[in-house]
Amino acid sequence: MFLKILEPCDFSRGRFRKIYTKYGDKGFTKLYGGDKVKKTHKRIEACGTADEVCSLLAVVVAEMRENEILDDIRKECEEIQQQLFDCGSDLATPRELRPYKQKEEDVKYLEQRMDEYISILPKMEHFIIPGGSKVSSFLHMVRTATRRLERKMVALIDEGEAVNETGLIYINRLSDYFFVIACVVNLKLKVEETVYKRSPKVFRTKK
């Protein structure tokens, strides 16, 4: 998704430009700047995972439209989809060929939202098992996919590839954000969390 440069469709005249490029017919694709790489390249793996996270989040957004009490969180998730496209665009850019789109403001946005939500959540002393409401369960799925995206980005760095460092920090914060709002959704919907029964006390405030 982040790799293709598509020409606009002329719907008014009933003419459509072709969406397929045929670059992938032999297992290759192109990055920003024209680099031709295998679809198994670690950069493509990262781009594809960013696309997956954004698509999974779309399911959450659709579910939240069914409940007005979640409107504020839904709007935040829609904004995050925009930021995920920025992340994917940056990942599709090798060798810093253009300025990165994701900035420190994106990271601060997530941190500010989490700080506000944490203040309304009950004290958490044990690990929780993903679940509760359907929306919260979907958010945990997005959270785990986001962690996978983070691992893909680190693997890309380990290969000596250029990656937006701010984007990596953003993705790290994003998985935390999804955990927090999964808890907030259950709170708003008055659904109890499932506590991990064998968990010792955790998340305690340090003395």
Rank of each mutant, 00 (worst) to 15 (best):
K39L: 10
T40N: 15
K42S: 14
I44M: 09
A46C: 07
T49R: 07
D51C: 10
D51W: 07
V53A: 03
V53N: 04
C54P: 05
C54V: 13
C54K: 15
C54Q: 15
S55A: 04
S55H: 00
L56A: 05
L56K: 10
L56Q: 13
L57A: 01
L57S: 04
A58D: 03
R65E: 12
E66P: 05
E66K: 15
E68K: 14
L70P: 11
D71G: 06
D72Q: 12
K75W: 13
K75G: 07
K75P: 04
E76G: 14
E76F: 12
C77E: 05
C77S: 02
E79N: 06
Q81P: 14
Q81H: 12
L84D: 09
D86W: 08
C87A: 13
G88L: 03
G88I: 03
S89I: 01
D90H: 08
L91F: 13
L91T: 07
A92E: 04
T93C: 07
T93V: 00
T93K: 05
P94D: 08
P94F: 06
P94I: 04
E96I: 05
E96P: 03
E96T: 06
E96A: 14
R98H: 11
R98S: 12
R98Q: 15
K101D: 08
K103M: 07
K103F: 02
E104I: 15
E104D: 15
E104F: 04
E105L: 09
D106N: 15
D106K: 14
L110G: 02
L110Q: 00
L110W: 05
E111L: 10
Q112P: 05
Q112W: 12
R113A: 13
R113T: 11
R113L: 15
R113H: 05
M114N: 00
D115F: 02
E116N: 06
Y117L: 07
Y117D: 09
I118V: 13
S119F: 03
I120Y: 08
P122Q: 07
K123W: 04
M124W: 03
E125K: 15
E125G: 08
H126A: 02
I128E: 03
P130D: 04
G131L: 01
G132V: 01
G132C: 06
S133Q: 06
S133M: 08
S133H: 06
K134W: 12
V135E: 04
V135H: 00
S136M: 02
F138A: 15
H140I: 07
H140M: 09
A145L: 00
T146I: 08
T146H: 08
R147N: 07
E150I: 01
R151V: 06
K152N: 12
K152P: 05
V154L: 03
V154F: 01
A155H: 06
I157E: 15
I157R: 10
D158N: 09
D158P: 00
D158E: 12
E159M: 10
G160C: 03
A162F: 11
A162Q: 13
A162Y: 09
V163W: 11
E165M: 09
T166P: 08
T166V: 13
G167Y: 00
L168H: 09
L168C: 08
I169A: 05
Y170P: 03
Y170H: 10
N172E: 04
D176I: 00
D176L: 02
D176V: 04
Y177S: 01
F178H: 03
F179R: 00
F179Y: 11
V180M: 07
V180I: 14
V180Q: 01
V184E: 00
